[in-house]
């Protein structure tokens, strides 16, 4: 595949912006669950952009762990955060909202579903990443 220099350079600027967007989507799903999935899609899109701009080598460069482990960790975080409310006498996947006073930001709401959403983010981003790696490999 022929690489485009313009695209490559643009991606350097885009990557942090997209990461911030993903973070924003994750935490803005404040009072209701759902932000983790959208945010995961943005991160997955970022992975795909790296592949398009820099090829498989570029994709490999941004791998810290095997993506399947991301899926596993995300899944684990999600199921554990789902069952914790049951231990406190609540319902499966129930959520509690803690309000924390943070200097400079003021009162910040921290819903427990944020943990669940982070898990979902990892599952979505990890599985797309694994699929990209599998589809771009030259086979076993």
């Amino acid at each position: 595949m022929k690489r485009s220099v313009i695209f490559d350079v643009a991606l350097r600027g885009l990557a942090p912006i997209l990461s911030l967007l993903a973070l924003f989507l994750l935490v803005s799903a404040h009072n209701a669950p759902g932000g983790g999935f959208v945010s995961g899609l943005v991160v997955a899109g970022l992975f795909s952009l790296f592949y398009v701009a820099q090829g498989r080598a570029g994709l490999m460069r941004i791998q810290f762990v095997r993506p399947v482990l991301l899926v596993g960790v995300g899944f684990g975080v999600a199921v554990i955060s789902g069952i914790v409310p049951v231990f406190f006498g609540g319902d499966l996947l129930g959520q509690e909202i803690f309000t924390v006073a943070i200097p400079f930001f003021g009162q910040v709401k921290f819903p427990t579903s944020l943990v669940f959403d982070t898990g979902i983010l990892l599952v979505v981003a990890g599985s797309v990443n694994e699929a990209l790696l599998a589809l771009t490999s030259r086979g076993p």
Partner: peptide, 11 residues
């Protein structure tokens, strides 16, 4: 569900 997650981690 948890079994699935654990089995993925034990890849």
């Amino acid at each position: 569900f948890t079994g699935t997650a654990a089995a993925l981690l034990a890849f």
